[in-house]
Computed example of a mutant assay.
Amino acid sequence: MIDETKAPMTPDEQKAYQAKQKQRAVIMAGLLAFLVVLFYFITFVKIGTAT
């Protein structure tokens, strides 16, 4: 639902909002990369100890 009583963002507010979005995206990408590497190493260790 759109709140029509709220004024649109000023250019400065828009830039701040976009900066926060970018920061969250970078953090999420880093977390995803960390999990991929973690799962890779867990799999590598489990396969290595199984033989």
Rank of each mutant, 00 (worst) to 15 (best):
A33M: 00
P8C: 09
E4A: 11
L31T: 02
I47H: 05
T49I: 15
V45S: 02
F34G: 04
V37T: 02
I2F: 10
K22G: 03
M28F: 10
G30Q: 01
I42G: 09
E13P: 05
G30F: 05
P11Y: 14
R24N: 04
A25H: 03
T10F: 13
P11A: 08
A29C: 00
E13W: 13
K6N: 14
L32V: 01
T51A: 13
I27A: 08
A50P: 04
L32P: 00
K15C: 02
Q21V: 12
V36D: 00
G30T: 00
Y40A: 11
K46W: 15
D3I: 05
F34D: 01
K46S: 13
L32E: 00
T10R: 12
V37L: 07
A33Q: 00
A19F: 03
I42P: 06
F41T: 07
Q18G: 03
M9R: 10
L38D: 01
K22R: 07
V45R: 02
M1C: 12
D3M: 08
T51S: 13
V45M: 05
K20Q: 10
L35G: 01
I47A: 05
G48T: 15
A25T: 02
I27W: 11
I2K: 11
E13R: 07
P8L: 07
L31A: 00
K15A: 07
P8M: 09
T5Q: 09
M28T: 02
A33N: 00
V37C: 02
L32C: 03
E4I: 12
A29K: 08
T43G: 14
I27N: 08
F44S: 05
P11S: 10
M28R: 10
F44C: 04
I27S: 04
K6E: 13
E4N: 11
D3L: 09
Y40L: 13
T49M: 15
Q18M: 13
F39M: 05
A7F: 10
F34C: 01
L38A: 11
V37Q: 00
G30L: 01
K22D: 08
K15H: 06
F34E: 01
T43C: 11
I27G: 01
Q23Y: 10
A50C: 07
F39Y: 07
P8F: 09
Y17E: 06
D3H: 13
T49L: 15
Q21C: 09
E4T: 14
A19R: 09
G48F: 15
V37W: 03
I42V: 13
Q23P: 10
I27L: 09
M9Y: 12
P8S: 07
K22W: 08
L31C: 02
K15G: 01
G48N: 13
A50S: 15
K15D: 08
A29Q: 06
F34L: 00
I27T: 06
G48Q: 13
Q18W: 13
